[in-house]
Amino acid sequence: MSINITSTPMRLTIALSGEIDHHNAAALRLEADDAIQSSLASNIRIDFGDVTFMDSSGIGFVLGRYRIAESCGANVEVINLSGRLYTMMKLAGLEKLVTLKTK
């Protein structure tokens, strides 16, 4: 599991890779929140392209980042979702809060 954060003035990109579960979501969260809170970008993009496994902790991760981004006035886009992850996020109703894009 790893996280790679890159930013431009308009966009902060958080690229996740590996397995996301309850155990490793905690570390991802700290790093992502630091970046979101110190960024002035209006668009937060979370890239799931290299995520090999995710349980509902991944949904919690997106929800939590959405709440923080929203309080900073930014919108959230979740990209490169596999069919499976897209289905899980839809099951959680995330498409009402963030933009979901499949691979």
């Binding site: 979501a25 969260r29 349980d55 509902s56 902790s57 949904i59 919690g60 991760f61 929800l63 939590g64 899980m88 099951l91 959680a92 109703g93």
Partner: peptide, 21 residues
């Protein structure tokens, strides 16, 4: 029940919903 959680915060309340699906 989907979205029900006693913990709030980062737990989505979807554990059983995911197991069921």
């Amino acid at each position: 029940e989907p979205l029900y959680t006693t913990l709030g915060g980062e737990r989505a309340g979807l554990g059983f919903a995911v197991m069921e699906s």
